[in-house]
Amino acid sequence: MEYKDIPTKADVEGFAAMRQAGCVSIYLPTGTTPPEADRARIELKNHLASAVRALEKLSVPRDRIQAVQAEGELILEDRDFWRYQSRSLAVFLDGDLAQTFRLPNRLTTACEIADRFYIKPLLRALTFPQSAMILALAGNSVRLLHITPDRPPERIDVPGMPRNVADAVGLDSVSGRSPDGRIQGSEGHKVRMLEYVQAIERVLHPVLVNSTEPLILAAAEPLAGIFRGAGEHPRLVAETISGNPEDKTDEELAAAARGVLDRLYASKVADLREAYEARIAAGTALVDLSDIARAATFGAVESLVIDIDRRVPGAVDDETGVIEFGDDDEPGEYGVVDEILRRALGSKAKVYALRAEDVPGGGAAAAAVRYPV
């Protein structure tokens, strides 16, 4: 059994490529308190029983059903696992693979059984991860914090991190004249602050180089400007938590950072809608689901926006992309939007999972295309 918190794009693409009879995908809301975890555990037990019955109805081999059931029961019995939960839990079982994700987004409950995994809800965590790093930078201190939606902020120990400006430049104090007498006053202080920032960047690089999370700076001027101008920070958010971070607790910085993330994501959604509306008007974006399915089948989708909550029962032809809509979901079937998503991921399209009111065109999906099909 493999437990993970936030899925990577590679995780989602890997699930999208899997095709095998008896794939079980379970989503359920959880919580961080023991009563919430107990309710979620009971709900998972009920979903697992329902999945076993559906697998039997689909005539999946008995040994595979038993393997799915055994893996599910291992999760149910893992008390340490249930002690640490987030807002939602995703469980994937097929008799060979067993994997969970503790997700920061509030998702609706679902139990899907088909010849492929139901992956659409995972995309919400990739679109809006709700986690970030905070660099709280002051002349006399520096902290690196990691925040997630439901847990207290965590301080990250960074080896070699200077304690303050003086520590970074090897002086007892940065006030007044340096030993050689050449740097003094406000200009000299700014030079030392730049050296301080450069020392911080050197030790931060190994920590942040593989991070996919936004970096939020909490600092007052001139340190904020010096840090932003000292190097390239691909994931550094434009908005700064202003003021001296020494006046704020870790919890206060985390609360301020979550507000920064909310505004960042709202801005991204607005920009995405504007870009799509322009492409729809120009004829290079599609809003009709049948057109989108065909484009996804032939690898023409450049980017895809999907309604995270809407289900469209039916199937998509493997060769032509023609949709056969269904009246209702039945065991063994999969959603049309999820299959479009799967094919778009297979051609390396960017995918955004949004709420209904944010999807351009107001439908279940919208797609920008590389070429007409």
Rank of each mutant, 00 (worst) to 15 (best):
S347A: 08
D150Y: 14
S347I: 08
D172F: 06
R151S: 14
E13P: 03
E43C: 03
L44P: 05
Q85Y: 11
G299C: 11
Q69K: 13
V60I: 06
R39M: 08
R19Q: 11
A300Q: 10
V169Q: 11
A257C: 01
P34F: 05
E112L: 12
G332M: 06
S211E: 03
G259H: 12
G243V: 15
E187Q: 02
T30N: 03
G225K: 06
G283F: 12
Y265L: 01
H233S: 05
V312P: 06
P234D: 01
G231V: 03
L97V: 13
L204E: 14
G243Y: 12
T100P: 00
L97N: 07
A238N: 13
D250E: 04
A315Q: 09
M1E: 06
K268Y: 11
V24Y: 10
A344R: 12
L354A: 04
V24C: 02
A266Q: 04
I308G: 05
Q69A: 13
L55R: 07
D317Q: 07
P35Y: 05
A49S: 14
L122H: 02
P61Q: 11
S178Q: 04
G170I: 00
Y27V: 12
Y27F: 14
S211G: 10
F227I: 09
L44C: 03
L264H: 08
A51V: 14
I113D: 01
E324H: 07
V260W: 00
L93T: 10
K350P: 04
T249K: 12
N46W: 08
P149C: 00
I200S: 08
I113S: 04
A110V: 09
E274A: 13
E319R: 09
R342W: 03
P179H: 10
R62N: 15
R62A: 12
D338F: 14
K348P: 11
V60H: 12
A21T: 08
P206M: 10
I134C: 02
R343A: 04
V269T: 06
A353C: 02
L123E: 01
F298S: 15
E213C: 00
N210E: 10
E195N: 05
L44N: 05
S59R: 11
R202F: 01
A353M: 02
P206F: 09
K268C: 03
I308W: 03
P179C: 04
S211A: 05
G160A: 10
F101D: 09
V209L: 13
L304H: 15
L264N: 00
